[in-house]
């Protein structure tokens, strides 16, 4: 059970949050101009890394804000949390 440092509220129990999958996948600005393959790449393809992964999290039972998190999936170590729109930290 993680202790997650919400960028707006501070440290809270994992049970207050929900995970929204891989981060930094930007919705295409002009979807109509994409081929089926390109659209499918955006729509379906997600990484499932053993190791350091960038994830979207939502403080669902708190401030309801979305933010990003860098987590090592092999040991659940949370390396960083940062607000939407902010640049991911360089390792």
């Amino acid at each position: 059970m993680f202790l997650i440092n919400c960028p707006y509220c501070g440290e809270r129990d994992q049970s207050e949050f929900s995970c929204g999958g891989e981060a930094h996948i930007v919705r295409p600005k002009q979807p109509t101009e994409l081929s089926d393959d390109e659209w499918a790449e955006y729509l379906f393809m997600r990484k499932n890394i053993k190791g350091v992964q960038f994830e979207r999290w939502n403080h669902a039972h708190g401030c309801r804000k979305w933010f990003n998190m860098v987590r090592d999936t092999s040991n659940d170590k949370i390396h960083a949390v940062y607000k939407m729109g902010e640049k991911p930290p360089v390792e």
Binding site: V26, R27, R56, N58, A60, R64, K65, W66, M84
Partner: peptide
């Protein structure tokens, strides 16, 4: 929450 997600992350 879906609408909030789009507002906060895609269309801020």
């Amino acid at each position: 929450s879906k609408l909030e997600d789009y507002l906060q992350t895609e269309w801020p």
